[in-house]
Write a protein that binds this DNA or RNA. Structure first.
Lengths: 341, 341
DNA sequence: ATGAAAGCGCTAACAA
DNA sequence: TTGTTAGCGCTTTCAT
């Protein structure tokens, strides 16, 4: 941060404007002038000060992504995709995490954690609609994830109900009838699993199976340990499912560990389906059948939405607010339901 | 980004400086004035423009972290730790990834990917000392990881040789004698596994075992699939180790999958030790014995090093350049060497 | 095609 | 204690 346009201008014996023109590849510069200025730039090792440019232009080229937890491979993989897509659009990504804690999610949404950003992609877990309704920050916001919001912000997700239905249908199609859902929340106020639970119910009813509450297991969180605890508790209570549909892959993996410890064979005794398609599920002793959301599409939709919005803030023609943008998903069938071939 | 200090000043009928004083909690402001200005701030919904502040102060409060791959849980977990430590120091983190590609690592080190940062923490895989020697960017740089560099940049790592030795000693202590190393590189020019390989050799010799090259397996990368391929190739070639020490947990997990497919039982037929202690290793059908680096300490040392350097750029008393900062590690013994209890 | 000068919003000397 | 003012380095009218 030492040599500025002015220094280059003096060295080349031209005005600041001319140097700026060269730096920004302005069309109308004579070749001779261009090489002369370029020479001065190279000799001095000039690098434009982006902060100054940002101040002048009112934009930073940075978008923030806030996820619950980087320790969850789904979010780590998603973050990687967001970084790539953002780079395609010449944006860099500021990463933050909230631990899925409502208070932190509010702080992030209000811009109190990072305030030099052009836009924000937030994947909330506990945030409520009201928290966002009272939002005062004016940087464009895009929401990710399984929660439903009725707010003037774009929301990007896969069709969670349909995905859950596909997962459970796969299990009923294999003749399973006692299909547990692992990963609900006890406090109905906060129910990220809401839609997936609904898909579970619908698919069961389709097959003439009455959903039983004893087969719905609550969890404290959605990590491997939470899945293990929930699975163990269900088995201890005497409930014996012949299949498990888990809120996500981590919960499924925790459940599989417990099943393994108890001598229950996956998939023969209990079939397991997860959600997220994290890489981990492709390499265990028993590979995991799972709902695979198109992470790259999610990343692309999110980044493009936020960018179009920050452009819209300047130009006139805005898109409607609060769109529901849906990415594709796929059911990937592996050993945890099909067995080893 | 609409209402500025000036607007607030006019509203409150005071000077810009006074508003600035209030915003920055300057000590000498009369309580009456403070509340009066605060009122105007609240009414107008004023938010300081950080870009302007940064331009003025010459700092952005952003440090960049560049890792090979967020899909590798080790780096995802490390990134989470870096974000936390940075937040403790009021810094935010710009995240980038390089795919472990030398060219991209060079771009990052030169600041061509993100140029609004106060400092850079880079975890290179293929970068060579010469690439850094010709570095022209002047933002403070800190290096992470297993490579050795002789450069004027702080380098943070655990004692890789000692860690590898501890891992292999654990295996020899269990009576294993044919201990494979999974995760070398064929091109000796680039050998991130160098130090771990040395530890492997030393520990074997200590036990009077002559290291055999047939037990060293090369890989194309360090992901699960690479571990699987390397393990399969070794078994196919007729080499039959009774233990495997892998470059990292992912390679170990890939290897375990192949052992499982071939009906070789871990740890009875083949014991396995990984490196990194990613969460995934704690929940498989066979939990993974591994070298656990103190990720939080690494994050702390990295962030503090980079911050002290950017402070040093302003004040006089600099620390010596190119320090070797070492974090602790621990060997965590699990089922892949001890079996199920 | 190039130059001069204003100003983005803020902080920090210096004055009062 | 509060006000005035000069930049931080850049882009951008408006002249030339």
């Amino acid at each position: 941060m030492r040599v500025s346009l002015k220094d280059v201008a003096e060295r080349a014996g031209v005005s600041i404007k001319t140097v700026s023109n060269v730096v920004n590849n302005y069309a109308h510069v004579t070749p001779g002038m261009r090489t002369r200025v370029q020479k001065a730039i190279d000799e001095l090792g000039y690098r434009p000060n982006l902060t100054a440019r940002h101040l002048r232009k009112g934009r930073t080229g940075i978008i923030a992504l806030a996820v619950p937890e980087l320790g969850n491979p789904y979010f780590a993989e998603l973050a990687g995709a967001v970084i790539d897509v953002a780079a395609d659009h010449d944006f860099t990504v500021l990463l933050d995490h909230t631990q899925g804690d409502r208070e932190q999610e509010v702080l992030v949404s209000q811009g109190f954690r990072a305030r030099v950003i052009d836009g924000l992609i937030l994947s909330p877990l506990e945030l409520e609609s009201d928290d966002l309704r009272s939002r005062t920050d004016d940087v464009p916001l895009v929401l990710l994830g399984e929660r439903e919001y009725d707010l003037p912000y774009d929301h990007i997700a896969i069709d969670n109900v349909a995905a859950a239905r596909a997962a459970v249908r796969h299990l009923t199609g294999l003749g399973r009838t006692r299909i547990a859902f692992l990963g609900a929340r006890t406090d109905t106020a906060n129910q990220p699993a809401h839609l997936r639970l609904r898909g579970w119910r619908e698919a069961l009813k389709e097959s003439g199976i009455e959903p039983q509450e004893s087969l719905v297991a609550s969890v404290g969180g959605w990590d491997r340990g939470d899945g293990a605890v929930a699975m163990a508790r269900m088995l201890d209570s005497g409930v014996r499912p012949d299949a498990v549909f888990a809120f996500n892959d981590l919960v499924a993996i925790g459940a599989m560990r417990v099943l393994h410890e108890r001598g229950l064979r996956v998939p023969w005794d209990v079939a397991v389906v997860g959600f997220d398609d994290i890489a981990e599920g492709r390499y265990g002793a028993v590979t995991l059948t799972t709902v695979s959301p198109d992470k790259h599409a999610i990343a692309r939709l999110a980044v493009e939405s936020v960018i179009s919005r920050l452009r819209g803030a300047e130009s006139a023609g805005n898109e409607p607010d609060g769109r529901e943008l849906t990415a594709e998903f796929q059911l990937v069938e592996r050993e945890s339901t099909l067995g080893r071939r």
